[in-house]
């Protein structure tokens, strides 16, 4: 957009094809929400697979969920809720031009996210070790029901996709944290922080459903 003569009243973060910052902000938000709708549909496909197989094999799901570690699952739930809160706090701070508060809260969010991933790593490596694995990799002999490998197939698909989202979210949070440190954001302009926050809340929201569906079956 270098060819556009910059109007003095146009701040540099206002793209040339928007008439004012309010229009740009609302466009970004609407775009983000539409993107979140696509995320819901993406996970929705997996939730459908879950619903179908759980309805077919209720006993197997009931038996298989007992090998998951409820303690670790609960800790992870609380960790993610806390990380969602720190993101909200970060936006609260940037709205009041408190950049230090924003950076601290974003750093805390990263810390929580990392904790979540470390716990997930321990859960995964345990399952890989004892053979609670999808499809033909399955070799765990502690479960009797029909097709328990399907439970772990869906478990790994859903938590795996969720984990990928956590990693992407961590990258995005790092990005806005660096941006805040460089002074790119202020109470006048913090759209990227807000967008990343929305993404992070969605990741949290998905986990809010994954947790009871895998760890709390009856």
């Amino acid at each position: 957009m270098s060819t556009v003569a910059q109007d003095a009243s146009h701040p540099e973060y206002l793209a040339h094809h928007f008439s004012d910052i309010e229009q740009q902000k609302e466009s970004a938000k609407l775009g983000m929400w539409i993107f979140l709708a696509t995320e819901i549909l993406t996970f929705g496909g997996l939730f459908c697979a879950y619903a179908v197989f759980r309805a077919w094999f209720p006993e197997m799901f009931h038996d298989a969920h007992k090998v998951l570690d409820l303690r670790l699952g609960t800790i992870n739930t609380i960790v993610l809720i806390a990380s969602s809160f720190t993101v909200v706090y970060a936006i609260y701070c940037i709205q009041r031009n408190n950049r230090t508060g924003t950076v601290i809260n974003l750093a805390l969010t990263l810390l929580f996210a990392a904790t979540f991933m470390v716990i997930k790593y321990f859960e995964y490596s345990h399952k890989i070790h004892v053979g609670q694995l999808p499809g033909h990799f399955y070799f765990y002999d502690g479960l009797e029901g029909t097709n328990p490998h399907l439970f772990f197939g869906i478990y790994f698909a859903m938590t795996g996709l969720h984990g990928v989202h956590v990693l992407i979210g961590m990258g995005l949070i790092t990005w806005v944290m660096i941006g805040t440190l460089k002074g790119r954001f202020s109470s006048e302009y913090y759209v990227p922080v807000e967008m990343v926050g929305l993404f992070w809340h969605l990741v949290d929201m998905v986990w809010i459903f994954l947790f009871p569906l895998f760890y709390l079956i009856g």
Partner: peptide, 22 residues
């Protein structure tokens, strides 16, 4: 609709590479 295609093809790829069996 397109996100569901994405997840379908992802599951198909997992089916071929890991055999998750869905």
């Amino acid at each position: 609709a397109t996100p569901v295609l994405a997840i379908t093809l992802l599951l198909l790829i997992l089916e071929r590479t890991l055999g998750i069996g869905i």
